[in-house]
Amino acid sequence: MTSPTPNIPPFTSLPLNPLDPYFSAWGLYGPHDQLGTLNRLSNDLVATSAKSEIRTGVRIGLDAPLNAQTRSGKAFFGRELFGQEMVLKEPRCVNDDVWRFNSQVSTQWDGLRHYGYQKERLFYGGVKPENIHGEGFDERRGKGPVGRTVTRDGESEVLGIHEMARQGIVGRAVLLDFHGWRLAQDPPTTPFDSFKSCSISLQTLLAVAEAQGTEIKFGDILFLRTGYTATLNEKNADELSALKDVHPPNFGGVEQSEEMVKWIWEHFSAVSGDQPSFECWPTQNPSLLLHEVLIAGWGMPVGELFDLENLAEHCKREGRWSFFLSSQVCNVTGGVASPPNALAIF
């Protein structure tokens, strides 16, 4: 079930500029925009969502541990594992610790610097790699692309995760528990493997929403439970190590289709799931990558590796799959991605 779409450009009008990459919406929120679809989370929408969704005060954390991938000694996509150094501040009875980690090695929001249109080599709003990495700036003017200041090392701040940190990712969220829905079929009739390039169709997601009785409203933040975490926990260290040696790795996720992109455009402010790649990976449709369209085309945060197990259990017990989300990304100037620091509040 879905609510009416408010006054946004129809999907058929994308790209808004015929010379821009496919399905892009550059300029919709102005030439210097840094927030993309998070602009949909207006003060009124957030306030209304808080009033309707916060009823019992139950809070559920959605972040997996930062060291979640250390069990097999390596991470998917070859990313650096989380490291922690404990420091006893002798002679005082005081501890510090030092963390070192890739911002995408555990639960994360992909920011707008993460993924660009690959063929055009352009990020959201037409920002080029050299605009981010410091080449081609007029240092005498001290300005980078879209009027953002240049830092002392010559790199710009454009599209940094700090822009999302100013107000966070906050509003009404919905969980589509595909994994629970699939297992409830007797026998299961929807094949899926979290560690194979399997697609979840739009028709399937709509069937999950209908079975849950979940209304999807404009501006919602989508969470998709594919069963990746549950499947991961069944594998031993050797099995995980072998899977992480596969390049490119294979993951189940949402299908790469025009109808899926249209549905996301018409409803959501951000999308996320429990799997390492929100979309099916490697893509089964090379001419359409969701990361390109969502992140680079619309400026939509994409969340991955969320721990949705406790959330799904609570939703099933309460018979309610909508909630209020509070997610405050790390305030790192020029950051690419961030742990979400996310709470579901009921």
Rank of each mutant, 00 (worst) to 15 (best):
N131F: 01
V246S: 05
N7T: 14
S156N: 08
G227F: 01
T151R: 14
P15C: 06
W321K: 03
Q328A: 13
A237Y: 00
T226V: 00
L66N: 08
V94Y: 11
V336G: 01
E304Y: 04
F123M: 13
E255L: 03
P249R: 02
V94T: 14
F23I: 10
A209W: 00
E234N: 10
G319I: 01
A237C: 08
H247I: 14
N7A: 15
A270G: 05
V332I: 15
S322A: 05
G273N: 05
E80V: 08
E80P: 02
L311E: 06
Q185K: 13
V98Q: 12
W109N: 11
Q34K: 12
F137K: 12
L122F: 08
V336H: 06
F101G: 01
Y29I: 03
R225L: 09
F123P: 00
D20P: 03
P65H: 11
H162Q: 15
V174K: 02
Y115I: 13
E304A: 06
V254S: 04
G160W: 01
A25S: 12
L325E: 03
P91M: 08
A165E: 05
T12S: 15
F278R: 09
G78C: 05
L308Q: 05
V302R: 07
L183T: 10
L81P: 08
S106A: 15
F123K: 04
V87L: 11
Q108W: 03
G142M: 09
E258K: 11
M300G: 02
I345R: 04
P10F: 01
V46S: 07
P249Y: 03
W321Q: 04
S199D: 13
F192L: 02
P188T: 06
V246K: 12
E157D: 09
F23V: 03
F195D: 07
E135R: 12
